[in-house]
Amino acid sequence: MITIKDVKKDYIDGDIKVHALRGVSMEIERGEFLSIAGPSGSGKTTLLNLIGCIDSIDGGEISIDGEELARRKAKELVEIRRHKIGFVFQSFNLIPVLSAYENVAIVLEMLELPRGEIRERTMTLLHEVGLEGMENRRPSKLSGGQQQRVAVARALIKEPLIVLADEPTANLDSGTGEALLKLMKRINHDRGTTFVFSTHDPMVMDYAGRLCRLHDGEIESDEKRSV
């Protein structure tokens, strides 16, 4: 489903050229629960950003569902993000002036689905992530775990090909983080949604069906696991 072939990415930090990714190759299959692990600066967030079409590749190829990203124009990449990719961020990134319901429904509003369908899908998903009765609460009235559940619902609502989660448990306590992981694991199981995490949280690695370790921009290990 996602093919990553010899991908390179460099950054300029002052006068120094930093090789964030030095020729990474891997295949991500539909329905995988993949954790990309590694220390800070190993290139895991960069890899996620490249898969998510929010950063540009300096070398190599990434294709999603057969569509090669490097040859796409910026507007086409936006459309890919809009329809095929869901993001979960470390710091939730919810819109504070919108309710939990609206923070999720915004995605479907962008897709201009019928209002009835938006309502039904949003309510169902909020219920599924355990936020029933909290639909009208604004983020400031939700706990960190609840906010991250809203963010997960926002990522899932368009039924994307892949959900990219950049250290989703980093701002949560261990109990809340584990509950969130269980939730995502369940959704992965029930819906067959592909999840790719970047993390250095051992708990997240424990839940991963596949663990890919990066070090200095290269794949150190890539193993499938039975969880």
């Binding site: 929010i54 936006v78 809009r82």
Partner: peptide, 16 residues
Amino acid sequence: EREIGMLRSLGLHNRE
């Protein structure tokens, strides 16, 4: 700025 980044990652065009 970060919210704008989030909206762009959700698939909003710059014109939007």
